[in-house]
Amino acid sequence: MINSFITNAKSRIAKRRRYNSLVAEIQSLTPRDLADISANRSEMLHHAYQEVYG
C-alpha cells in the first residue's frame, strides 16, 4: 500500500515536471515566434496538457 502511494506520487511529480517544462518552453515563445509557425499559445498549452495528462 505504501509502495503504491510512493509510486503514484513519483508518477504525479514526473508528470508535473514534464508539464511545467512544456509550459515554460511555450511561454518563452515570442508573439513573432508564434506568428512564424502559425501557432496559438492557448492551443499549444492545451495540447501540452493533453500530452502529459491524457
Rank of each mutant, 00 (worst) to 15 (best):
residue 40 N to D: 09
residue 1 M to Y: 01
residue 32 R to A: 11
residue 27 Q to P: 03
residue 11 S to G: 11
residue 23 V to T: 07
residue 31 P to K: 13
residue 25 E to A: 02
residue 24 A to Q: 10
residue 5 F to C: 13
residue 1 M to A: 03
residue 52 V to L: 02
residue 34 L to E: 01
residue 48 A to Q: 02
residue 50 Q to F: 09
residue 20 N to H: 04
residue 45 L to E: 04
residue 34 L to C: 04
residue 52 V to R: 01
residue 37 I to R: 03
residue 54 G to I: 04
residue 19 Y to V: 01
residue 16 R to L: 07
residue 52 V to A: 03
residue 31 P to I: 07
residue 44 M to C: 10
residue 18 R to K: 09
residue 42 S to Q: 12
residue 14 A to F: 10
residue 13 I to H: 07
residue 36 D to C: 15
residue 41 R to N: 03
residue 24 A to Y: 05
residue 50 Q to Y: 10
residue 23 V to L: 09
residue 35 A to M: 12
residue 46 H to M: 14
residue 26 I to N: 00
residue 33 D to Q: 11
residue 33 D to L: 09
residue 7 T to G: 15
residue 28 S to W: 04
residue 50 Q to K: 15
residue 17 R to D: 07
residue 21 S to N: 11
residue 31 P to E: 11
residue 9 A to N: 06
residue 26 I to Y: 00
residue 6 I to Q: 12
residue 1 M to Q: 02
residue 8 N to W: 08
residue 9 A to T: 10
residue 29 L to N: 04
residue 29 L to R: 06
residue 47 H to V: 08
residue 18 R to A: 04
residue 13 I to M: 09
residue 36 D to S: 14
residue 30 T to F: 00
residue 4 S to C: 13
residue 9 A to P: 01
residue 44 M to F: 08
residue 31 P to V: 09
residue 21 S to Q: 04
residue 44 M to K: 05
residue 18 R to V: 00
residue 45 L to K: 05
residue 32 R to N: 03
residue 3 N to S: 13
residue 2 I to E: 11
residue 31 P to R: 09
residue 7 T to V: 15
residue 54 G to L: 06
residue 6 I to R: 11
residue 6 I to E: 09
residue 42 S to D: 15
residue 38 S to R: 13
residue 35 A to Y: 09
residue 29 L to P: 00
residue 26 I to K: 00
residue 6 I to A: 14
residue 19 Y to A: 02
residue 13 I to Y: 06
residue 35 A to S: 14
residue 39 A to I: 08
residue 25 E to P: 00
residue 24 A to S: 14
residue 35 A to N: 12
residue 33 D to E: 11
residue 8 N to K: 14
residue 13 I to Q: 08
residue 2 I to Y: 12
residue 3 N to Q: 14
residue 11 S to I: 11
residue 5 F to Q: 10
residue 54 G to S: 07
residue 11 S to P: 07
residue 53 Y to K: 09
residue 21 S to E: 04
residue 26 I to H: 00
residue 44 M to T: 05
residue 16 R to S: 06
residue 17 R to C: 03
residue 21 S to W: 02
residue 8 N to L: 12
residue 25 E to F: 00
residue 20 N to Q: 10
residue 49 Y to W: 15
residue 13 I to N: 05
residue 40 N to M: 06
residue 5 F to D: 15
residue 47 H to D: 11
residue 39 A to Y: 04
residue 29 L to F: 06
residue 5 F to A: 15
residue 51 E to A: 08
residue 28 S to C: 13
residue 24 A to H: 08
residue 22 L to D: 00
residue 16 R to E: 08
residue 26 I to P: 00
residue 1 M to P: 00
residue 12 R to C: 10
residue 35 A to I: 10
residue 8 N to P: 08
residue 42 S to Y: 06
residue 35 A to E: 13
residue 31 P to H: 12
residue 44 M to W: 06
residue 11 S to H: 11
